[in-house]
């Protein structure tokens, strides 16, 4: 599903990571500054590796030796950021529809309804992002990413900006997503409890290196 073998120098910090996974939810675990976000940004194509390869679903999207770098917009990924990043000038409905329009996909009412029900965001359709709570914003961001029909969903600390109460509000949606949405995910977090609940496999990062890889039990 996902194969990563990359090196990247970012100022003083050097990142060198290699793993390959068929897991449904790959948990990328590590303290802040361990290189998690840089790694995810490389998978998304927002950051270019200095050396190495990345393959998503068998397709090579980065191969520095062969000079391959597929731009982000052609990677067919979904990305949920910590700060949601909803488009402030568009309504919730337009935000949700954005990926489908940009990819030129035909409307898929069945999928649309399924995801909106799954995330419970039907009632928010006509609102502006500025009028949503943090938790609502994050659910809309999840819906927006899923509705672009990605082959891989990247989530970079999607609960990081929420307080404890809100986290507990969103977690069940993420669990449902894992079990019902059928999209493989890379889930970045520094929270052991979160990853125990969600991840099926763990990649542990420490100061830019993969220190362990395996089932959830590596989170001791």
């Amino acid at each position: 599903m996902l194969r990563v073998d990359v090196e990247k120098q970012l100022g003083e910090f050097s990142l060198s990571a290699s793993f390959s996974s068929e897991g449904r939810v790959i948990g990328l675990f590590g303290a802040s500054g361990a290189g998690k976000s840089s790694l995810v940004n490389m998978i998304a194509g927002l950051l270019r590796p200095d050396r190495g390869t990345i393959a998503i679903d068998g397709e090579i999207v980065d191969d520095t030796a062969a000079g391959i770098h597929v731009p982000t917009y052609r990677r067919r990924i979904g990305y949920v950021f910590q700060d949601a990043r909803l488009f402030p000038h568009l309504s919730v409905a337009q935000n949700l529809d954005y990926g489908r329009r940009m990819n030129g996909l035909a409307p898929d009412p069945a999928q649309h309804k399924r995801i909106i029900d799954l995330l419970d965001i039907g009632a928010l359709r006509d609102r502006r992002p500025g009028k949503l709570s943090g938790g609502e914003r994050q659910r809309v961001a999840l819906g927006r990413a899923l509705l672009s029909k990605p082959r891989l969903l990247l989530l970079d600390e999607p609960l990081g900006a929420l307080d404890e109460g809100r986290k507990l509000e969103i977690l069940p949606y993420l669990v449902r997503l894992r079990d019902e949405a059928n999209v493989p995910m890379v889930y970045v977090s520094h929270d052991v409890a979160e990853l125990r609940q969600l991840a099926t496999q763990i990649v542990m990062l420490k100061q830019g290196r993969v220190t362990s890889f395996g089932g959830v039990k590596v989170l001791t």
Binding site: A44, L46, P71, T72, Y73, R74, R75, R76, I77, G78, Y79, F81, D83, R85, F87, P88, Y98, G99, M102, N103, R144, A145, S148, L154
Partner: peptide, 15 residues
């Protein structure tokens, strides 16, 4: 906020 443009790109929008 340029991060909004990045978000658009991850959703499949060409530059």
């Amino acid at each position: 906020d340029r991060r909004l443009e990045q978000a658009a790109e991850t959703l499949g929008a060409a530059p």
